[in-house]
């Protein structure tokens, strides 16, 4: 089967646009899409922003790092080692090799070293993804700020985004949904580093393809706790819909983006964020979620 554009050998079939593309046309489309995503939401500024890229060593974060480097952004890679044995320890060498190859500064911070516990030591495995999210986001924000970064970029892809949208809708978490979008949070506070997702319009499958085509060596280890996640059920449902009705995921994201201003108008908290009594970071209550988790398991 050949490329719809130049008749050379196709490497991918994009059912949602009815095209088959060769490696060259696919890469060009992928990069153009990421540039457009960044530009459309004014996510990043080459002159003003120093960007902390959250890197796990998986395909999404390394593809993001590769592209931001290629696009000449001022970047520093940050890895939060949450202490998941057989997963995080396997991924660290991939990040180290990648950053050395592309001459990208890399910082790694360990939950164990800073707070005295690991994710593995938390007994409640069913809520692991929530705890992990709170801890990783909290540490990433704090470390990025300490490094003088003005943005945090993460490798969330189209599949992650559409799963998150549906999960929040199913759970009725409209306030949480209002805080998401291309630039997360939009809290205007000196302690908060805005988070951006330049790959949010890239299907997960295409991240893998781009990584393989560009010889980006990533870890494909699965987090041992991901099987507990509610997300898996939503993922399966979305993949079935996409298979039957190609373009479903893009439609969800685009329509969500249209709804976002209304969600923000009605569901974004109006009051200014407070300071956590324990750590001084941003919180809605008196103690932040990060400190609650540390207090419970640290």
């Amino acid at each position: 089967m050949n490329c719809s554009r130049d008749n050379s050998k196709a490497v991918v079939e994009l059912k949602y646009v009815g095209e088959r593309l060769c490696a060259e046309h696919f890469s060009s489309l992928f990069e153009k899409r990421v540039r457009r995503t960044i530009g459309k939401a004014k996510m990043l500024d080459r002159k003003r922003d120093k960007i902390a890229v959250g890197v796990s060593g998986g395909k999404d974060s390394l593809v993001l790092l590769y592209l931001l480097k290629k696009m000449h952004y001022n970047i520093v890679a940050i890895t939060i080692d949450e202490g998941i044995r057989g997963y995080r320890d396997k991924s660290l060498p991939f990040i180290e090799r990648f950053c050395r190859k592309y001459k990208i500064p890399w910082k790694t911070y360990s939950l164990k070293k800073e707070y005295g516990f690991t994710l593995d030591s938390i007994p409640d495995k069913k809520l692991m993804c929530s705890y992990c999210g709170v801890l990783r986001r909290g540490m990433l924000n704090k470390k990025a700020r300490q490094l003088g970064c003005t943005k945090v970029a993460t490798g969330h892809n189209l599949d992650d985004e559409t799963q998150m949208i549906l999960m929040n809708l199913f759970r009725g978490e409209l306030e949480r949904l209002a805080r998401t979008g291309p630039i997360t949070g939009l809290i205007e506070d000196e302690l908060f580093v805005p988070r951006v997702k330049p790959l949010r319009e890239c299907p997960e499958r295409e991240d893998v393809l781009y990584a393989v085509l560009h010889d980006i060596k990533y870890t494909d280890a699965e987090c041992p706790y991901s099987r507990y996640a509610y997300r898996n059920i939503v993922r399966e449902m979305l993949n079935k819909m996409e298979d039957r009705y190609p373009g479903t995921k893009f439609a969800i994201l685009r329509n969500f983006d249209k709804m976002l201003p209304f969600l923000r108008k009605y569901y974004m908290p109006k009051e200014k964020p407070k300071r956590c009594k324990k750590c001084g970071e941003i919180t809605r209550g008196s103690i932040c979620k990060f400190c609650e988790v540390v207090e419970e398991f640290g």
Binding site: R205, A221, E222, C223
Partner: peptide, 8 residues
């Protein structure tokens, strides 16, 4: 075979 689903 490169698995599409990986990571956390």
């Amino acid at each position: 075979l490169f698995p599409v689903i990986s990571g956390g």
